[in-house]
């Protein structure tokens, strides 16, 4: 029974998740004349590269680069800061349940709709002279990514048995050594998953990029993507082309990192 169920389940899941994606890819190569709503046909009879060429002519690479810089910066900060915070919350005893208070505060921040914080945050960045800069974006994205990373890493760090660390401690390893030699390797699958998610959040963020960046050449991809759906018309070809193109870097990253995800406990140092 299980032998039948697994292939069936996997097939269904793959179909559900990939059919719309396939349609997106097909549409990215579809000449405008062939696009009539959505026929059942996935692949155009006369595929064209014209949508991709249009994107490159319009300077998609510059925006791709901006997005890359901002998301890498954002992720680097969130992942490292979030990791040590999560570690502290799991491994140390706090007086008066301060750790719980901290976590609730973090949760509260994550719950706020970004629209509400946008205007005051604009003023904060303005005061710091960080409007219209990538550094300002990386900083403001911490509002999304840092709470996310803390909560995620918390549960991964908690899964790590303390014995190994205690052993290392007895051998004279200090805090930094324990973190780098014992905790980071054991938390690797969690760190990888968190990294992918944090990267994604920053990669696709729209609102803060719109409000905090003024110079067009500094814009990130999501804002460019938004220009393909106007209220009168959706430019399906270029929209799907940019959709596919902009997801590539994150997909490659995820593909590369999934090895770590799937290795699991095999990574633990013996």
């Amino acid at each position: 029974m299980t032998r039948l169920l697994r292939p069936l389940g996997v097939t269904l899941a793959v179909l559900f998740f990939t059919l719309p994606t396939l349609w997106m890819l097909g549409t990215a190569f579809k000449p405008a004349a062939e696009y009539i709503g959505t026929s059942l046909v996935f692949w155009p009879s006369q595929p064209t590269f014209s949508h991709f060429i249009q994107l490159f002519d319009e300077g998609v690479l510059r925006r791709l680069f901006n997005t890359l810089v901002v998301s890498i910066g954002t992720t680097a900060v969130s992942l490292s800061v979030g990791f040590i915070s999560a570690y502290a919350l799991v491994r140390y005893r706090f007086p008066a349940r301060l750790d719980h208070a901290f976590l609730l505060l973090v949760l509260l921040i994550k719950t706020l709709p970004p629209i509400v914080v946008a205007i005051p945050l604009y003023r904060v960045l303005n005061a710091l002279n960080l409007l219209d800069s990538h550094l300002g974006l990386m900083l403001s994205y911490q509002v999304y990514t840092l709470p996310f990373c803390i909560w995620m890493l918390l549960s991964f760090v908690r899964q790590i048995p303390i014995d190994l660390e205690e052993a290392a401690s007895l051998e004279g390893a200090g805090l930094v050594q324990r973190l780098l030699r014992v905790v980071v390797p054991l938390a690797a699958p969690g760190l990888v998953a968190t990294l992918i998610f944090a990267m994604l959040l920053a990669w696709n963020e729209f609102l803060f990029a719109l409000l905090f960046i003024q110079t067009p050449s500094q814009f990130t991809l999501p804002l460019y993507i938004a220009t393909f759906t106007t209220e009168n018309q959706t430019f399906w070809g270029p929209l799907m082309a940019i959709g596919a193109l902009s997801s590539l870097p994150v997909l490659l990253l995820a593909g590369y990192l999934q090895k770590h995800l799937l290795r699991g406990f095999a990574m633990s140092p013996q």
Partner: peptide
């Protein structure tokens, strides 16, 4: 790489 990227940001 992440850190290097974060440092090389000033376009």
């Amino acid at each position: 790489t992440l850190l290097a990227g974060a440092m090389a940001l000033t376009g």
